[in-house]
Amino acid sequence: MKNNFLKIAGLSIALGMMVVSCNKDDSSTTPTNQATSVVSDSQTANDQSESAYQLADDATFMPFGGRNLRETGETLDKGDGHIPMLGGGWDKLWKGKDGNCATVTKTVANSIITIVYDFTAVAGGVCGDKAVGGKMTITIPIKPDALFSGTMVRTVTYDNLKRDSLTLNGSHTITTTVVSGKATASEKLATMTILNSNTGKIITYTSNRSRKIDDKGTADRGDDESSVTGSTTGKSSDGTTFSTNITKALLTKNLCSDSKGFPVSGTEEITTAAGVKTVVDYGNGTCDLKYTETTNGVTVEKTRTKGKGKK
């Protein structure tokens, strides 16, 4: 089993990336600059989506939740890939890398495990060198039986969850359908807001996504790949509306350690309120943070910049 526990750290990485997106200078509001701003904000939404999914997946994978729902066969050497009975040790006090300052509670009711990370009582609102606050709640199912087919729902909910200068609100609902051992997830991110307290800027969005997992025929999640399609609508940090449509599935690879959660291939079309369309192409599958933006026939090569302390 991959030694990758439920990580608030994963969310911190995404939030680090978001700091860059939310700190843009919008003194110039030309259509081209607006398109660039919207692309960055749309990528911020993607970053958060990937982090929230990873949180829920990690929670389901660990002993207190059982094995995660992945696309597997029935002959893997470490299990059949479905959530087993509630494992021993699920209720042990475990806080994750960046949860050491939080009050963590885990409860079970009606076959649902609820895990709450509460930062509201952290002294001075600082954990290590990071400002913290608010709460994050994760719900996951205990078990179906080993041959389960049907749907299961997992959620990640943010209640003024603060990391450095950014505060998140909203919910990410993951509905996973399993048929003959094959899992497909539909994801809804509802009324998401990301507030930057340094600038006062807010990104708001709603997203509908569909995700397929390729486990590469192994029980180790380290080689898993996710293929995501769907759309996003919202308001960018410059105050204008935007929409994003994935036109070729965005592929992410767990093997890409320095760019984990960032697409290595796929395309999306992002449209600003002014009707300017930008096609973002994430490449040919290479593990990097590079991509291209094509607007009005002009293509620019770019590299996604992560926050301080992140590659």
Rank of each mutant, 00 (worst) to 15 (best):
W94V: 12
Q54E: 13
W90K: 10
N68R: 12
G99Q: 08
T60W: 05
P84N: 12
D57K: 04
R67P: 00
A59W: 00
H82T: 14
L55R: 09
K92H: 13
D98C: 12
G88Y: 06
K95D: 10
D91F: 15
D77N: 09
G65P: 02
I83R: 14
D98K: 14
G73C: 01
F61R: 01
A59L: 10
F61N: 06
P63Q: 04
G99C: 10
L55P: 00
N68Y: 04
D98L: 15
G88S: 15
D91L: 15
G79F: 01
T60S: 14
E71N: 15
F64M: 08
F61W: 03
A56V: 09
L76S: 11
K95F: 08
P84H: 09
G87H: 05
F61H: 10
G79H: 04
P63F: 00
E71C: 08
L69H: 09
D98M: 15
G99K: 07
M62V: 05
M62C: 07
D80R: 10
G73W: 02
L76R: 05
G65K: 02
A59S: 14
G66T: 05
K97D: 14
F64N: 05
L86P: 14
G66D: 03
G81N: 06
E74C: 05
D58H: 05
P84W: 03
D98R: 11
L86V: 13
N68C: 08
M62E: 10
A59N: 08
L86Q: 15
L55E: 08
W94A: 14
G89D: 06
L55N: 08
K97E: 13
H82P: 06
H82L: 13
L86A: 13
R70T: 11
G66M: 03
A56R: 03
G66L: 00
G87Q: 09
K95N: 12
G89Y: 05
T75N: 07
G73A: 03
G73K: 00
P84K: 02
D77T: 09
F61E: 06
G89V: 04
L55T: 14
G89I: 00
G99M: 08
T75A: 06
G96N: 03
N68I: 00
G99Y: 06
P84L: 04
H82K: 14
L69E: 08
R67C: 03
I83W: 02
Q54M: 07
G89A: 08
D77A: 12
P84S: 11
M62I: 03
M85K: 15
T72N: 13
Q54S: 08
G65T: 01
G87C: 10
D80A: 07
N68M: 06
K92W: 13
T75C: 05
L76P: 06
E71Q: 12
K95H: 11
W90G: 15
H82N: 13
E74S: 12
G81V: 04
K97R: 11
D98I: 14
E74W: 07
K97G: 10
L76V: 05
D91K: 14
D57R: 03
L69K: 06
M62G: 09
D98V: 15
G87F: 07
G79I: 02
Q54V: 04
G96Y: 04
E74P: 00
W90A: 14
